[in-house]
């Protein structure tokens, strides 16, 4: 696969082999009553460990409250681990001096498109990150142009964000992150509030950034259709990683997914049901084309018999 090669190429030698290392991460939300007494503890992330290579496209799946967003916020030091550690590109997120470096290495795109656009005009919003990083004016201009063009939003540079569609707003948010030249982008349910068209726009942009620019992508989502292009999928439930593997491996385990209250893509489910009723269809069908090919194969055999 081409994108794997890019990933390997951009990883400089002499660095630890993993770009991101998460070791025994644990995080609890403590609920308190009015007198500040502890009312209850919810363990949002519980003993999670995994590695991500530079240039990889990782998807983290889970239903609401599985701890996937909490996990994501540890990667760019918005939350700090209670136990265990997170090491991003050789920097430990506990190291306060590295805070800004960590955040510029791993950018984040959030769920609500309205609540993450700071500028009143599109290009000003894209410039916000570089401004904070102290990039000189001339270079900010270049970066704004380059990132808006990458996301196909250059013609909207003078618009108010309020006049854009949800998908366009998310593309502006992505452009704003790209302008900081990150090595990794974390997408925290970027499509949850979008219509199908907007979802398509955002996922296509994420894939392009991974394949063309070699940027490491960590996509948090609960839409199954969005993870089929990932290199690796992690499935979370109650703060723990329950399943890990390629999309094909994960989607072969339809029953387990259903136990975790996750639905599989329609095509995969149809293939699975057909297999259950006796047709010789392999596990882990991901796209409509694959299913059509398999069915045609079966039909040919049937006709020639």
């Amino acid at each position: 696969m081409a994108k794997k090669k890019i990933g390997e190429k951009t990883a400089p030698e002499g660095r630890p082999s993993s770009f991101l290392q998460i070791r025994k991460l644990k995080y609890e939300y403590i609920r308190r009553d009015e007198e500040n007494n502890v009312e209850g503890i919810t363990t949002a992330v519980d003993d999670v460990s995994f590695d991500v290579k530079e240039g990889e496209f990782i998807a983290i799946l889970g239903h609401n409250g599985s701890g996937k967003s909490t996990l994501a916020k540890h990667i760019n030091a918005i939350l700090f681990p209670e136990e265990g550690e997170v090491i991003l590109d050789g920097m430990n997120t506990k190291d306060e001096d590295k805070l800004l470096d960590i955040r510029r290495t791993a950018g984040m795109v959030f769920q609500n498109p309205d609540n993450q656009i700071i500028g009143q005009v599109v290009d000003e919003d894209v410039a916000f990150g570089p401004e904070n990083m102290g990039v000189p004016t001339e270079e900010i201009k270049q970066r704004v142009e380059e990132s808006l063009k990458t996301l196909g939003m250059w013609e909207y540079r003078n618009s108010s964000p309020n006049r854009l569609s949800g998908g366009q707003k998310q593309r502006v948010s992505i452009a704003s992150v790209i302008a900081m030249h990150p090595k990794c982008i974390i997408f925290d349910e970027p499509t949850a509030m979008l219509d199908p068209r907007g979802r398509y726009e955002v996922i296509r942009a994420a894939r392009a950034l991974n394949e063309v620019e070699g940027i490491t992508i960590i996509l948090i989502t609960h839409y199954m259709e969005e993870v089929i292009h990932a290199d690796r999928v992690l499935v979370m439930d109650k703060g723990k990683v329950k399943m890990e593997g390629t999309p094909r491996e994960i989607f072969s385990r339809v029953e387990e997914l259903k136990e975790l209250r996750l639905t599989v893509p329609q095509v995969t489910e149809l293939a699975w049901e057909l297999k259950k009723s006796g047709l010789p269809i392999p596990d882990g069908i991901l796209t409509r084309e694959e299913l059509i090919k398999e069915i045609l194969k079966i039909m040919k055999e049937y006709i020639y018999r």
Binding site: K73, N115, A127
Partner: peptide, 22 residues
């Protein structure tokens, strides 16, 4: 949400900040 988004984009007050359109 906005505070989090600003922090994620390296906002740390006016110190060391440059301007896009001075």
């Amino acid at each position: 949400d906005l505070a989090m988004a600003m922090e994620a984009r390296c906002y740390h007050g006016g110190k060391g900040r440059t301007q896009y359109k001075p």
